[in-house]
Design a protein around this nucleic acid. Structure first.
Length: 264
DNA sequence: ATGGTTGCAAGGCAA
């Protein structure tokens, strides 16, 4: 199975880029975050025409929004939590059938957390930490099997997941309260497939700010997007590729797609 | 230390 995860930063605006990505990479499953489209306006027909008639989506006006697209049928996972009681469209999960049996895919968009890394001063940071703790508790209570978890987790956990470990330790996305919670969450049943394929100390980034004149030259990136799998399916891992050239396509997202080939 | 850019949707907010 070829899976791509991508924070597309507006599904409707970037449908042409998604089409190019599909034509070039021919994925079987696509997980998108920051679709920024309310469910009634979701482009069902356009995505079906691109080869993805099976769609699970949870969107809202202006913000957030996640979707899973598949060439083959998806079955929505029932009874997923309403994280932090906010109904803010940050998680969708589905099961698909493979030769070796069903596999469950979780697609997350973790709160970015604002600018100030202090939960007392910044409600958005408090929300981020609470979200991470809720997710950890839920997976501990519901141990995952034959599962893939992807998404924009808005945290770069390892030293070489950021352009400068030292300069980012107090910057939201790389602070110890976040990175320790993200690793706790992963240890609730998953392994880091991206780092399995591309271990430290190789630098690995999936996001480059819009606020840099030349993203490639300054290369101040972070690994905010992740692919985790449960250990039972990880031996099938064949390829992880960060599709960095997409950052140079016309009117790009600030995140690039990450691709995984896994034998299932 | 600050500001730099983008999307949504029509002025700021979130990232």
């Amino acid at each position: 199975m070829r899976l791509i995860t991508w924070n597309i930063n507006s599904l409707r605006l970037r449908l042409p880029l998604l089409q190019r990505l599909i034509e070039e990479q021919a994925p079987d499953v696509i997980c998108l975050q920051e679709t920024k489209v309310p469910d009634p306006l979701y482009p069902q027909d356009a995505l079906a025409e691109l080869g993805f008639p099976h769609q699970l989506y949870r969107g809202m006006k202006s913000y957030n929004g996640v979707t899973i697209l598949s060439r083959t049928p998806l079955e929505a996972v029932a009874d997923t939590p309403d994280w932090c009681g906010k109904t803010d469209c940050r998680h969708v999960a589905a099961t698909i059938q493979t030769k070796s049996g069903p596999v469950t895919i979780h697609n997350f968009y973790v709160p970015a957390g604002g600018d100030i890394p202090d939960p007392q001063e910044n409600d958005k940071f408090a929300h981020k930490l609470a979200f991470l703790e809720e997710a950890t508790a839920w997976f501990k209570a519901n141990p995952p099997k034959r599962s893939i978890l992807v998404g924009d987790l808005n945290i770069a956990p390892l030293e070489h997941d950021v352009w400068s470990h030292r300069q980012l330790l107090k910057i939201v996305s790389h602070t110890p309260p976040e990175t320790s919670r993200l690793i706790d969450w992963m240890k609730a049943g998953f392994e880091d497939a991206m780092r399995k394929a591309i271990p430290e100390p190789e630098k690995l980034f999936t996001w480059w700010s819009y606020r840099n004149r030349d993203w490639k030259k300054s290369n101040r990136g972070r690994r905010l997007d992740h692919i985790w799998t449960t250990p039972d399916i990880l031996p099938g891992l064949n390829t992880i590729e960060v599709l960095s050239p997409v950052r140079d396509w016309t009117s790009p997202s600030d995140h690039v797609p990450v691709l995984m080939d896994i034998a299932l």
